[in-house]
């Protein structure tokens, strides 16, 4: 969590408004005022969901964009946090459920997720490049099957239900407005942390390792340790998203961490773009909107075909996602007046 604290400290300076940039300010105002115009459905099913999946994809974007490690196990990490909440806190499935208060269970769940993420990272950084995606996919799939088979820890196929979001300060945080602001708060924290972290010493070192691991090793950096620590940090973000997800759904089952969900996170990150931390949130918004409204067009059954095709088109046309499309069109628009010939 040191990163998020540092980000808060760094922000308030004399020119912080300028530093923030007009884009961020407009976005922030829009997001804060969104509950004034949105119905409960739009607040939670679109707003909250997009923010949660945006955070999940953000943790992937951090690993892929800055570390060059494309992970398919982010939903697994989030799932570990979600299961930890169900096991440590209360559930009505009559399995485990230690009844810890939320302020103890939530940090432990996030920590468990971060440690699990670091372990997954430690396993996968033993190889490089495209192997990472295969190893993480294998881990995600194996965890899914394990959660489905095992009744002692994961309560098998049915998983856990009856998990409640906490109520404190006189607010029930599962209420649409409160939950939206809760998600927004954590999403902004993670986003700011990534923005700041990317320019920190650690972030720059990580990017240097991504670009040339051999040189960094020769310069005396511990490449493995940096990568594993990046996994740990990504695990914190994914873990937070997992906690929010289980508070929102009130239940967690193997389906939550299935292969479809793991691939969804990758789709979101790729559709949004892996170059800038805002990309995953755009991607999440697009996918969640599609998920909600495309059902009216193509029917609930064929939704995966639609999302798969959109994904294929994005990968073929613009490897950097929607942000990449914008980045390619923007200079054309800006220089349209300067063009003379065809």
């Amino acid at each position: 969590m040191s990163l998020t604290i540092a980000a808060q400290d760094a922000a308030p300076q004399q020119t912080w408004l300028e530093k923030l940039g007009p884009g961020h300010i407009v976005l922030a105002v829009a997001l804060v005022l969104y509950p004034l115009v949105a119905s409960d459905f739009f607040l939670t099913q679109i707003g909250g969901y997009s923010l949660i999946f945006g955070m999940l994809a953000l943790s992937l974007m951090m690993l892929a964009g800055y570390g060059g490690m494309v992970s398919l196990a982010q939903i697994t990490v989030a799932g570990i946090a979600a299961y930890a909440i169900a096991i440590l806190g209360n559930n009505n499935s009559n399995v485990l459920g230690f009844g810890w208060p939320w302020w103890l269970a939530a940090p432990f769940a996030v920590l468990a997720a971060a440690v699990a993420s670091a372990l997954i990272g430690w396993i996968s950084v033993r190889t490089e490049g495209i192997y990472t995606i295969m190893i993480t996919l294998a881990i995600a799939t194996a965890t899914y099957y394990f959660a489905q088979q095992n009744y002692a820890i994961f309560n098998g196929h049915s998983g856990y239900a009856g998990i409640h979001a906490p109520s404190f300060w006189g607010v029930n945080w599962r209420d649409p407005k409160a939950f939206y602001y809760l998600c927004l708060g954590f999403a902004v924290l993670s986003y700011a942390a990534i923005l700041y972290g990317a320019r920190s010493t650690f972030g720059l070192t990580l990017q240097a390792i991504r670009d040339n691991p051999r040189r960094m090793r020769a310069l005396g950096y511990d490449v493995t340790a940096h990568k594993v620590f990046a996994w740990f940090l990504a695990g914190i973000i994914a873990g937070l998203a997992g906690v929010l997800l289980v508070w929102f759904n009130g239940r967690v089952s193997p389906g939550t961490i299935g292969v479809d969900a793991a691939i969804d996170v990758l789709i979101i990150a790729v559709i949004g773009g892996l170059r800038h931390p805002i990309g995953p949130f755009f991607g999440a918004l697009v996918v969640v909107l599609m998920q909600t409204f495309a059902i009216d067009i193509v029917g609930a059954e064929r939704f995966n075909t639609l999302i798969g095709l959109v994904f294929l088109v994005i990968v073929f046309v613009s490897p950097d996602g929607i942000l990449g499309l914008w980045g390619r069109i923007k200079p054309h628009l800006a220089q349209e007046s300067l063009r003379s010939g065809p």
Partner: peptide, 9 residues
């Protein structure tokens, strides 16, 4: 990524 997309479809 493309092969993942193909597998989904």
């Amino acid at each position: 990524l493309v092969s993942i997309g193909i597998s989904i479809v």
